[in-house]
Design a protein around this nucleic acid. Structure first.
Lengths: 213, 213
DNA sequence: TCCGTAACCTACTGACGGGTAAGGTTACGT
DNA sequence: ACGTAACCTTACCCGTCAGTAGGTTACGGA
């Protein structure tokens, strides 16, 4: 069924094979989900036999974890690189804008990576996913903290919650974008900026909403 | 290990047993995830033997789908009921506030249900999850449409995206709440209102964010 | 050229767990 | 009392992979 992609070149060095295997694994995991993905298919797609996968990347769990690590690093690098791009001390608005653009750009171009990162295996790897997410959320919270002024209301917990809400909104919009291929990453980033910044701007200025009564 | 919960009362009518089985299934699915949950354990927790589960609820997939349906209906009923509560024609701000309160309240009290609903089995049941989510998002989008004024900027797509962002933020905050048992549903709803309403209010009034340059 | 080693293979095993066959038992209607 | 249908069980089958044992081939250095 699934065709072997790399032209059966023989006797490649380990580093190359490992990347091929990871590429194959990401593709298969994203298409099938963790459990339905079989090591046989991954090996086939990688153009290699199964024991090689075990020899190089270990058991299925290790392989999945390796995929997760590689793709997460890639995503985080893209976002952080863009956000802190042209030297330090950009205004927070600009940091947010660049970060969002980079995020949606990444999802747009690496759908498989995103599918894997976004939770093909919540049940078994919940802890790992949460760790990755926590990393991202920490970065976001840091940015929010820097954007804070003396007029800002809200506790530490409010800030953490805000970061969670922001990341959740971004994830959700990423899913929407995948279903609407016509939408450009910039348009998505723009939408989220409007959703978030206009409100956050007011919050920074001290605006609060309170239940009536 | 997992002890049989219902006191081994014999010869119960079908309707009762089915609910017991669904309760057990939700508990086990939420703890283990879809794949790692075994029909044997579900049967054991339900205090019944395995073939009864098959006789009443069918195969594993059917059982999971039944859980999904029951819990989703329960959540939607809680939220919609609260949001449209004291008669029709509440102001949109109030509708949003009540809806959020009900949502976080539900998650607070039915953690297992929420865990199952939130994606223990993304890989295999992706379509089902998306269907449920789409249902919710449609409701939200409907509310947003009603809140729209002539000053509001944005297309249909913007509105849909906004609804997605809102739901994503709520989901993400729900996860945060689960990790912070001290937080009350009202506090969470309040936070999200501040995140969303202060911003949305401005958007309704015609405010827009645009990239600089 | 020969040899060590890293790359690579075919062909298997073993367990886990979904699903079922076949039969026992209790309540209830008549 | 007695049939019958619904309830419930034990005990099994069998497909599907994760993971491995053990042997083969090419490459690179001496």
């Amino acid at each position: 069924m699934t065709e072997a992609v790399p032209s059966r070149s023989r006797r490649l060095p380990r580093a190359v094979r490992e990347q091929q295997m990871l590429d194959a694994a990401v593709a298969v995991f994203s298409r099938r989900g963790y459990h339905s993905a079989s090591m046989d298919e991954i090996a086939e797609v990688a153009g290699i036999s199964k024991p090689m996968v075990y020899a190089y990347l270990g058991a299925k769990e290790d392989l999945f974890a390796a995929c997760l690590r590689r793709e997460a690093d890639s995503l985080v690098a893209a976002v952080v690189g863009a956000a802190t791009g042209g030297g330090a001390d950009l205004p927070p608005e600009e940091v947010l804008w660049r970060g969002l653009r980079a995020f949606f750009g990444f999802v747009h171009e690496h759908r498989d990576s995103w599918a894997v990162l976004h939770g093909q295996a919540r049940g078994e790897f919940g802890a790992e996913f949460e760790a990755i997410r926590a990393r991202v959320i920490d970065v976001v919270a840091m940015m929010l903290t820097q954007a804070r002024t003396e007029r800002t209301v809200g506790t530490e917990a409010d800030l953490a919650a805000f970061a969670h809400a922001l990341v959740g909104a971004a994830e959700s919009l990423a899913g929407w974008m995948v279903d609407h291929p016509g939408e450009s990453p910039d348009a998505m980033a723009s939408r989220l900026m409007n959703f978030v910044w206009v409100g956050f701007h007011d919050l920074l200025a001290g605006a609060v909403w309170r239940p009536a009564g």
